[in-house]
């Protein structure tokens, strides 16, 4: 299955088709989220999904499936606060409420893939790559592989990212 989980963005393992307000909606779930939402028993699956998305668009699904008590341990901001203001409390909120935020971002943005500049400052500990040189190498490697495998769209995207970050 080539689709992403509607709850967390991981590759989907379960696919449910649902008719809501006369339009057909496809719902994809990863095995983890499927389990969380009682989807492992094929008989109970449709019912519990229905409960979660009744009357709503799939794109708004996360609003029904995350508890408003969910909050950020760093700043105390909760999902209920987000629904009121449309803003989050601190930068850690994105990681603390990742599943919800990534769904929200998916609805608002072109994609959830960051393609912008790499900060000039090398001190970013949160980077998986140890600074710029490694990132450059790994992007160049990814570019080579993409070209080898004739995935030209991916290759173009990686090339753009290399240009954006390293000129």
């Amino acid at each position: 299955m080539n689709c992403k989980c509607h709850f967390c963005g991981k590759p989907a393992a379960v696919h449910v088709t649902q008719v809501i307000n006369d339009s057909m909606q496809n719902v994809y779930l990863c095995s983890n989220c499927a389990q969380k939402h009682g989807m492992f028993d094929p008989d109970s699956s449709h019912l519990s999904i229905l409960k979660n998305i009744s009357g709503a668009l799939v794109s708004k699904m996360q609003a029904f499936s995350f508890s408003p008590i969910l909050s950020c341990s760093k700043c105390g901001f909760s999902l209920a606060d987000y629904k009121e203001t449309g803003l989050v409390g601190c930068s850690a909120c994105y990681l603390e409420m990742y599943d919800f935020m990534i769904k929200t971002i998916e609805n608002l943005q072109k994609s959830t893939e960051y393609l912008g500049k790499v900060p000039s400052n090398m001190n970013y500990k949160s980077l998986n790559h140890n600074g710029k040189a490694d990132l450059r190498e790994s992007l160049e490697e990814a570019l080579r592989v993409a070209i080898d495998e004739e995935r030209y769209e991916d290759a173009a995207r990686i090339r753009d990212r290399l240009r954006a970050s390293f000129g």
């Binding site: 989050v88 994105y94 400052n121």
Partner: peptide, 23 residues
């Protein structure tokens, strides 16, 4: 940038509103 900006490699610069996140 003194290395103290809110930045995440996967989703970029972190902003108060998700409509500005990334770049």
């Amino acid at each position: 940038d003194g290395g103290d900006f809110a930045f995440d490699e996967k989703i970029g610069y972190l902003t108060a509103c998700p409509t500005n996140i990334g770049t």
